[in-house]
Simulated scan of single mutants.
Amino acid sequence: MRAAKAPVGRGSLPLVAGLLALGLVALGALAVHDALAVSGAVDRDPVTTGVLDALDGLAHDAPVVLGAGIAAAVLGLLLLPVALGRRPRTSVDLDAATGVHLRTGDLERVVAGAVEGTDSVTDVSVRATRRKVAVHVTSLAPRAQRDEVVRRTRERVDPVLAALASPPRTSVTVRHEELR
């Protein structure tokens, strides 16, 4: 069985596509308005007539044409990396021959589930990226036992992260609650 490809995020391309789509919708609305104006269904002058009258007689070597051409070329060059750029990876690879992947949000839930049963831990919060997992625990243990809480937490987190192809760095922070 061939390994599956790693899932990737959307990147910037949908934003550019959305802006271009809005521009095309605006041009379509303008065309419908002008068609209705020409047919007499709307009591207004077509908008494109005024634009075409302003451009009538404009020479091909006019500074306005040169400026518009340069602006279009620069805009195209700026959009080229967006269109051809790599999309961000959104998952971590499990150590498996079949290409199993785990999203970072799911990794957060798995790590939090592994830590929840730790002695004296009352609350767990996990933030994970592809390179780092930050575990924040709230503990009822006295401050003097902070190192013990960190050790027990790492004992539960490390086997989970060992299942990944390249385990991320781990940091554990402890917040102590006082019993009243």
Rank of each mutant, 00 (worst) to 15 (best):
A3W: 00
A4Y: 12
R10K: 15
A17E: 14
L24T: 11
A26I: 07
G28P: 01
H33I: 14
D34H: 13
S39C: 00
D45P: 00
V47M: 06
T49K: 15
T49C: 03
G50S: 13
D56F: 05
D61R: 05
P63W: 09
V64M: 06
V65G: 02
G67I: 00
L78H: 09
L79G: 07
L79E: 10
A83H: 14
L84E: 09
R86F: 09
T90M: 08
D95M: 01
D106K: 01
E108P: 06
G113P: 07
G113C: 10
V115R: 12
V115L: 13
V115C: 08
G117E: 07
D123N: 13
S125H: 12
V126R: 06
A128P: 03
R130P: 04
R130I: 01
R131M: 04
V133H: 07
A134Y: 04
V137Y: 05
S139D: 01
L140I: 00
P142R: 11
R143M: 10
A144S: 14
R146C: 09
V149Y: 06
V149P: 03
R151M: 03
R152P: 00
E155K: 13
V157I: 01
P159A: 13
V160L: 04
L161Q: 07
L164E: 04
A165M: 04
P167S: 10
R169K: 12
E177K: 14
L179Q: 12
